Structure formats: structure tokens, C-alpha cells
Computed example of a mutant assay.
Amino acid sequence: MADDRARAVIGRLRAVDRIDGSAAYEHANSRAPLMREYLRRAARWARAYGAEESWPFFDIAEHVAPEVRTPPDAAAEPDHCLCR
């Protein structure tokens, strides 16, 4: 079950079109508010799981469900397609 969910997430990440690197600059006005909201939410998660020392960039999933792992066959796939 967890393997199926991990594969589904990997599939969704791979489906994102990252080819147009200039597209992010078309939304420059929203980047700062989005980052502020990310930091606010990450701070709440960090506080809830006692991970304040790892904030702001930490693996929230590792704290929420450390027993969940990426299936070995999915982890072995090249991830170059995630960083086009």
C-alpha cells in the first residue's frame, strides 16, 4: 500500500513540466508570499514534532512517519527527470 502511494507521488512529480525555466519569473510577485507561507507552515510542523533545530528546511515526512520509505526499485530509478 505504501509502495503504491510512493509510486503515485513519484509519478506526479515526474509529470510536472519543468522545461520553461523563465516561467517562475512571470510570477515574481507571488514568490515572496508563497515562501513566507511555507516558512510559517514549516515552523508549525517543526514545533509539533520537536524539530525546531532543523527548521526551516527539514524532512517533515521523516518526523511524521519515519517508518515509511521509498520502495527500493523506485529509489533506484534515475532522478534526472525530476530536475529538467
Rank of each mutant, 00 (worst) to 15 (best):
R7L: 08
A28S: 14
I19Q: 15
R7Q: 09
R69H: 11
P66T: 02
H80N: 15
P71L: 02
P78D: 04
E53Y: 04
P56T: 10
C83M: 13
R47Q: 10
F57L: 14
G50T: 02
P78K: 02
R5M: 13
P72F: 01
W45K: 13
Y25Q: 14
A42E: 00
R47M: 07
V9N: 09
E37A: 12
R40V: 04
A48V: 05
A43Y: 01
H63P: 00
A2F: 10
A74K: 01
A6V: 09
R36M: 08
H80M: 12
R40Q: 09
G50L: 03
P72S: 01
W55R: 04
R18V: 04
L39K: 10
W45E: 05
E52T: 09
P72T: 00
L34P: 03
P71T: 03
A51F: 01
D73F: 06
D3Y: 05
V16N: 06
D17P: 00
W55L: 11
P33R: 03
A43M: 09
L34C: 11
E26S: 12
A6W: 07
I60A: 04
I60G: 01
E37W: 02
N29D: 10
D17L: 11
G21V: 08
N29K: 10
A46M: 04
R18W: 07
A6L: 06
E52G: 12
A42D: 00
R36D: 10
Y25T: 10
Y49S: 03
V68I: 15
E37P: 07
P71K: 01
P66L: 06
G21C: 07
I10M: 13
D73T: 09
R41V: 08
M35D: 11
A46F: 00
A76G: 03
A51H: 00
D3R: 00
D20M: 07
V9C: 14
H27M: 09
P66N: 03
C83V: 11
A32P: 13
A65H: 07
W55S: 02
I19M: 11
G50Y: 00
H27R: 15
R12M: 05
R7T: 05
T70P: 04
D4P: 00
Y25S: 15
A24Q: 11
T70E: 15
A42Y: 00
A42I: 05
I60E: 00
E62W: 04
R84V: 08
D79A: 14
A43K: 15
H27Q: 15
C83Q: 14
S30V: 12
R44C: 01
D3H: 05
G11E: 08
A48C: 09
A23M: 12
D4E: 15
A48T: 05
A48N: 06
A51D: 00
M1F: 13
R69E: 15
D3Q: 04
P78M: 01
R47D: 06
M1E: 14
C81R: 11
I10R: 03
I19S: 13
F57C: 15
R40K: 14
E26Y: 04
A76F: 04
F57M: 14
L13F: 12
P72V: 03
A48S: 10
R36F: 06
R31T: 10
